[in-house]
Design a protein around this nucleic acid. Structure first.
Length: 767
DNA sequence: CAGTGAGCGAGCTTCCGCTTGACTT
């Protein structure tokens, strides 16, 4: 028999707390929720007050039976799930499953894992708050109703296996709408004039001022005319403004800001950030990583202060407690911080080290003094034009928190250069060294990254720290969006330079529209989004979550009955569902592009059974229509008739080689040549499948066959020793095995190979 | 691994939010 049993949500937390509580306490964990709505069916009796049908999921059976055993073995049970809506519901499910009396079961909470906070909690137990539990039930049931009633509509009207939900559908909408802004964006250009001036009276070498003209010029002619004017102008220093300013550190990390910074500074995906953070948490290096709070424990504040003073000195320290401003934040945990601030680094994998250091810096910086800066802004007047040149400089007078950490922004390159401006006085004459007018193109709004989408969702109050990463995965798994790179396109920019009284025009190329790891909506995502916006506008509204959250809050306060709230939502919603099922047409995203230039047949594109497809002709005629799949990176929404017609030029036959046809096509993995039922990839950027010749095709085939021959070093029947990109390796039944370091592959026997395979790493992926 | 596009119908898919392991090669 144990005197006291404490139940928390996370096993790592259980371990830590047990140390603080001593011998009379045993701490176990529930591993999150232990019960949920029935997996199959709706799991809600809509006819009967929305009575929920809860069950213990199969994978939770073991945890629950262990909890039951522990509970039977204890005199006192304390439920210490997190202090938020979900935590309260977990407490209630635990009480129900363990058959505890709600009138006496002790519910305790703490927001930080410190001895003080935990002792405090034990001294002040309360009862389970049924209002809070009911607000969670309302949340859970609403999400189930939305997801499980709308998804089947999509299966019927769009495609099987699709999904819709309060969170994911809005995430997709954000991406689709942004994509359409980009599609409809028209690029414009203007000439930006920058100059390098030299102070006439100055003796020093570096008495230069970089400045930009206060006006941009729409065309080349206007820009050149201005430069002519510049050549004749006399320059002098106009106004000088020196303003002191401060910069303050960003608050400590929450889940969302950690994901954003890890993406910007370390190029981690959202899922990767969470996986690495989980490792650090389990190793006791950082506090809990799924949090919406910027709060630091008192203990951490004191430790940070001590550490900063001893490391950097008194004037670098400034203790700050940040207010969490995020909409709907529940603040059940601390901000994400190092468990021990004394350790600026940690052990572990490279990624763990990098992420830890990021967290350490951000946390420490948040407790440091503001940086003091001095901004200098100077205008340079022309004697023959109202246009002025502006020079901006910035000097850091005191670095403060910048000594350890500066937050990054999403803007890839900031145009403003910060540098020290040489001393000047009003009226000082200057002359130009060179003046350049360069064409600048406007850029469309940026595509979302995983991290910037999380940021946007958080701003809208949609989703929770524990679901950001899974939501991003879901919308990719459903095929609604895809994370991709784009090489961008070359574009010419015109440049006019004024140097020593002479104007020279030149052309430079730049890459525009280059993308790295951005989220691109796919056709199916756009079709589903349009269907949902058309038929379920209420749920797709960006404010829907915020509005229902207000009602959940009212339920939590006891001012609103959860069943009434759900009823009010459900009856019109369910009518919309049945109405949509009965009356609405299937949605295929069909577009008529025009008619075939020779035969006059209609040309259309739409979502087919196997993806986006172009079609010539229709089944109304006797002729069978012809089909061709759209290629990757083409959208139903933007494909032109020429591009569509082009798709039908493949596959084409190049002629016969060794008495078999050579056929060129584009498959899932790019352009290929098929010959004697073998496939030969065409090299990206080298061979154009539309233009490739007979001779070149033969060359590709011979090259491949030749390298295949060299590939096999030894053939032991089912085991082969092959030559790969990274050197020799073993292959057996479609699985590859690395040779141990220092193996001389020339001397390997069949027995050696069998040994290597048997002793190889068991955690190897099996595909 | 590189193609598929008629229609029918069985049986399946699906939500959000808590939390981490792991049936066997």
């Amino acid at each position: 028999m144990i005197e006291n049993l404490v139940i928390v949500e996370s096993p790592a937390k259980a371990k830590t707390i047990e140390k603080f509580l001593g011998k009379d306490f045993r701490v176990v964990s529930s591993f999150g929720h232990i019960r949920d709505l029935a997996k199959k069916n709706l799991g809600i009796d809509v006819e009967n007050n929305f009575n929920p049908d809860y069950e213990i999921p199969k994978e939770k059976a073991k945890v629950v039976s262990e909890l039951r055993k522990a509970a039977a073995d204890s005199n006192n049970i304390w439920i210490a799930s997190d202090e938020d809506r979900e935590g309260e519901a977990i407490a209630w499910h635990l009480a129900s499953v363990l058959k505890l009396d709600l009138a006496t079961t002790k519910r305790i909470v703490f927001h930080e894992i410190t001895k003080e906070a935990i002792s405090n909690a034990i001294e002040n137990p309360r009862l389970i708050d049924m209002n809070l539990v009911n607000s969670q039930q309302a949340r859970r049931i609403l999400d189930r109703l939305v997801g499980f009633e709308i998804s089947p509509v999509l299966w019927k009207k769009v495609q099987p296996s699709l999904s819709a939900g309060r969170v994911q559908s809005v995430a997709v909408r954000l991406l689709v709408e942004r994509e359409r802004e980009i599609i409809s964006f028209t690029t414009e250009s203007a000439f930006r004039v920058t100059a390098l001036f030299r102070i006439d009276a100055a003796s020093e070498e570096n008495a230069y001022l970089k400045a930009e003209a206060s006006k941009r010029f729409s065309g080349e002619k206007e820009a050149a005319a201005f430069l002519e004017l510049c050549n004749d102008s006399k320059y002098s220093i106009g106004s000088i403004s020196i303003k002191p300013g401060t910069r303050s550190p960003a608050p400590p990390f929450t889940t969302s800001t950690l994901q954003q910074e890890a993406y910007r500074k370390l190029s981690f995906s959202v899922a990767q950030t969470m996986a690495v953070a989980q490792k650090l948490y389990e190793a006791g290096r950082i506090t809990y990583m799924r949090t919406d709070s910027t709060n630091l424990s008192k203990l951490a504040l004191v430790k940070a202060r001590e550490m900063i003073i001893s490391e950097f000195g008194e004037k670098y320290s400034k203790t700050r407690q940040f207010q969490t401003k995020t909409k709907g934040a529940q603040e059940a945990h601390e901000a994400i911080r190092p468990a021990y601030l004394d350790n600026p680094t940690t052990t572990g994998s490279q990624n763990e080290k990098k992420l830890y250091e990021l967290i350490w810096k951000r946390t420490v910086a948040s407790q440091m003094a503001d940086a003091q800066i001095e901004k200098t802004s100077i205008s340079i007047d022309m004697n023959n034009s109202p246009v002025t040149f502006q020079a901006n400089g910035e000097v850091i007078k005191f670095d403060g928190f910048l000594r350890v950490y500066a937050e990054s922004t999403d803007q890839e390159s900031s145009e403003e250069e910060r540098y020290v401006i040489p001393p000047v006085t009003k009226g000082m004459p200057l002359s130009y060294e060179n003046i350049t007018a360069s064409q600048k193109f406007t850029t469309p709004p940026p595509r979302y990254t995983e991290a910037s989408l999380v940021k946007k969702l958080e701003e809208l109050g949609i989703g929770r720290p524990s679901t950001y990463a899974p939501t991003i995965s879901t919308i990719q798994n459903r095929g609604y969006v895809s994370r991709e790179d784009r090489p961008g396109e070359k574009r010419q920019i015109k440049i006019i330079t004024l140097l020593k009284g002479k104007l020279t025009a030149s052309v430079k190329t730049e890459i525009a529209g280059k993308e790295k790891s951005k989220l691109f909506p796919q056709d199916i995502g756009m079709i589903v989004n349009d269907f949902l916006v058309e038929n379920f506008s209420e749920i797709l509204d960006y404010h829907f979550t915020a509005e229902v959250e207000e009602q959940f809050d009212e339920i939590a306060l006891g001012n609103l009955k959860w069943t009434g709230m759900i009823e009010k939502f459900y009856s019109p919603f369910h009518k919309t569902v049945t109405n949509t099922l009965e009356k609405k047409e299937r949605k295929t995203g069909v577009r008529v592009l025009g008619n075939h230039p020779e035969t006059g047949e209609p040309i259309t594109v739409r979502m087919g059974r196997y993806g986006p497809v172009a079609q010539i002709g229709d089944s109304a005629n006797d002729e069978k229509p012809r089909f061709a799949s759209l290629s990757k990176n083409q959208l139903l929404e933007t494909i032109s008739i020429e591009e569509a017609l082009n798709l039908f030029r493949l596959p084409r036959t190049l002629g016969q080689y060794e008495e078999a046809d050579m056929i060129v096509g584009i498959g899932k993995f790019g352009p290929y040549i098929r010959h004697k039922s073998k496939f030969y990839s065409l090299k990206k950027g080298v061979d154009d499948p539309y233009a490739v010749t007979f001779e070149r095709a033969v060359e590709v085939i011979l090259e491949k066959n030749d390298s295949d021959k060299k590939k096999v070093i030894k053939d032991f029947g089912e085991i082969m020793l092959l030559n790969g990109r990274y050197g020799p390796y073993l292959a057996k039944e479609k699985l590859n095995y690395r040779l141990p370091k220092g193996t001389d592959h020339e001397k390997l026997t069949k027995e050696d190979c069998i040994n290597i395979i048997e002793n190889s790493d068991k955690t190897k992926k099996s595909s």
